[in-house]
Design a protein around this nucleic acid. Structure first.
Lengths: 142, 142
DNA sequence: GAATGGATTTAGAATAATTCTAATTCCTAC
DNA sequence: GTAGGAATTAGAATTATTCTAAATCCATTC
């Protein structure tokens, strides 16, 4: 069944990173993978609690830190709003919808990313590029 | 003399925005214009206090908010670090030097900015674009 | 020139996201 | 089975920022 397959795949991703696949880490990771709406730590905490009511917020923060450090999840920051978490590991940009508060992933062609690096003066070596947009998005066409 | 000229130019920029040129606003604005190293509110507070020891941190925050709202100063955020303030009003990117903690302005050609907007799906309308780099910069060639 | 009232400043309290601390629990390896 | 390190936990602490309510300032009106 799909769920157990997913669960073991998820476990594998943790162990492949050298992480102990604790139930807490698995449920935090699972929640982030399942609903990719860039939740905050609080939102993740709420979702996780419905499956594991005894988990603590500190643990959610610990798991998130571990996942981020191991490159399994990325942090997304905008202004000084609470950090959001994103399981999309491709290099991509973010669009923050002012109207709905939603965050959408935006694909950036590799060619354009290379051009972006090109704006740096000689001697500047960027290990990370962050690109984000703020604005309004047309409602989804259903 | 240069100082009074600067001071009146600064006053003019405030009044042109419809702001009352209070001593507090002027000194906060002056400090930001004088040393363009992207200071935090705390750093601005410290610099301002040396000229106006009675000013309060709340006032510095108030002045900064006013300056930002009127487009005289821009906020620069990186991850969840304290907000920094930048008097460079041209559209530009920021480079955060991991080694020194310094922030440098990076010029972005208008043509490239246009290309960036081009990555948005149809229906997405960006009112602001933020681009920042993190990495190491070669030391200044003196 | 004094009174009025809205804008501004101020000190300190409050807020909120996150991190820290110290104790407990859990596992893994011996 | 036990020892020891890793992980979890509750709650305290931290920190940047915002809020609150009172005081002050200042432009305008009488």
């Amino acid at each position: 069944m799909a769920t157990s397959l997913e669960s073991s795949a998820l476990t594998k991703r943790l162990t492949d990173s050298g992480l102990r696949p604790t139930p807490q880490r698995e449920v935090v990771f699972k929640v982030i993978l399942e609903k990719r709406d860039h939740p905050t730590a609080d939102e993740i905490f709420a979702r996780v609690k419905s499956q594991m009511p005894t988990i603590s917020l500190a643990t959610v923060y610990n798991c998130l830190e571990t996942l981020v450090q191991n490159g399994l999840v990325r942090q997304v920051n905008f202004d000084r709003a609470p950090t959001r978490y994103c399981p999309n590991l491709h290099e991509h940009a973010h669009f923050h919808d002012e109207t709905t508060g939603e965050v959408h992933d935006i694909d950036v062609p590799a060619e354009l990313l290379a051009k972006l690096r090109g704006v740096l003066p000689p001697g500047y070596d960027a290990s990370a590029i962050e690109l984000s947009f703020r604005g309004k998005a047309a409602p989804e066409t259903n």
